[in-house]
Measured scan of single mutants.
Amino acid sequence: KNAAKIVNEALNQGITLFVSDNKLKYKTNRDSIPSELLEEWKQHKQELIDFLTQLES
């Protein structure tokens, strides 16, 4: 999976991924984040940080 797909899947579940101080963060109104999503974010962390940083610049 690529970073764009992961970010879109998160958005579809009401979760916004973003970068703050070079760290991957998220915002959501959900009570909890599915563990498989958290695991996927960890596996692709640097790719996600790079992707989101490019989007914001």
Results as ranks from 00 to 15, higher is better:
residue 45 K to N: 13
residue 18 F to P: 01
residue 17 L to D: 01
residue 32 S to H: 13
residue 43 Q to A: 14
residue 24 L to T: 00
residue 57 S to C: 11
residue 53 T to K: 12
residue 15 I to E: 01
residue 48 L to R: 00
residue 47 E to L: 11
residue 16 T to I: 15
residue 33 I to E: 02
residue 6 I to G: 00
residue 31 D to W: 04
residue 2 N to L: 13
residue 10 A to F: 03
residue 40 E to P: 02
residue 33 I to G: 02
residue 10 A to V: 01
residue 9 E to V: 05
residue 20 S to E: 15
residue 8 N to R: 15
residue 55 L to H: 11
residue 49 I to P: 00
residue 46 Q to K: 09
residue 26 Y to V: 04
residue 22 N to R: 07
residue 28 T to S: 09
residue 27 K to T: 10
residue 45 K to W: 15
residue 53 T to M: 14
residue 7 V to N: 03
residue 36 E to H: 12
residue 21 D to G: 12
residue 55 L to E: 10
residue 30 R to W: 05
residue 22 N to K: 08
residue 38 L to A: 05
residue 2 N to G: 11
residue 7 V to K: 02
residue 15 I to Y: 09
residue 51 F to M: 03
residue 9 E to M: 06
residue 9 E to G: 04
residue 18 F to G: 03
residue 22 N to L: 06
residue 34 P to R: 04
residue 31 D to I: 12
residue 1 K to W: 11
residue 38 L to Q: 06
residue 45 K to P: 02
residue 36 E to L: 07
residue 34 P to C: 04
residue 35 S to C: 13
residue 34 P to D: 05
residue 3 A to T: 05
residue 24 L to F: 03
residue 50 D to M: 08
residue 36 E to I: 09
residue 50 D to I: 11
residue 4 A to V: 06
residue 25 K to N: 08
residue 21 D to F: 07
residue 36 E to G: 09
residue 49 I to M: 06
residue 19 V to Q: 03
residue 34 P to Y: 03
residue 52 L to I: 06
residue 32 S to V: 09
residue 36 E to C: 07
residue 1 K to R: 10
residue 42 K to F: 12
residue 17 L to E: 01
residue 5 K to M: 15
residue 15 I to V: 07
residue 16 T to C: 14
residue 28 T to D: 02
residue 37 L to F: 07
residue 43 Q to E: 11
residue 8 N to C: 15
residue 22 N to I: 03
residue 18 F to E: 04
residue 11 L to S: 07
residue 35 S to E: 14
residue 51 F to R: 01
residue 20 S to K: 13
residue 24 L to A: 00
residue 27 K to D: 05
residue 10 A to R: 00
residue 8 N to E: 15
residue 21 D to N: 11
residue 53 T to S: 11
residue 55 L to W: 11
residue 37 L to Y: 06
residue 38 L to C: 10
residue 33 I to R: 02
residue 39 E to D: 09
residue 3 A to S: 05
residue 52 L to K: 00
residue 15 I to G: 01
residue 23 K to L: 12
residue 6 I to E: 01
residue 42 K to E: 15
residue 37 L to C: 05
residue 47 E to Q: 09
residue 53 T to G: 07
residue 56 E to S: 15
residue 53 T to I: 13
residue 13 Q to Y: 14
residue 11 L to H: 08
residue 55 L to V: 13
residue 41 W to H: 02
residue 37 L to K: 03
residue 11 L to V: 06
residue 4 A to E: 14
residue 47 E to P: 05
residue 38 L to W: 08
residue 57 S to M: 12
residue 34 P to H: 04
residue 19 V to A: 05
residue 40 E to L: 15
residue 50 D to G: 06
residue 46 Q to T: 08
residue 14 G to C: 07
residue 24 L to P: 00
residue 51 F to C: 02
residue 41 W to N: 00
residue 13 Q to A: 13
residue 4 A to T: 05
residue 8 N to K: 15
residue 17 L to G: 01
residue 51 F to T: 02
residue 15 I to Q: 01
residue 45 K to D: 08
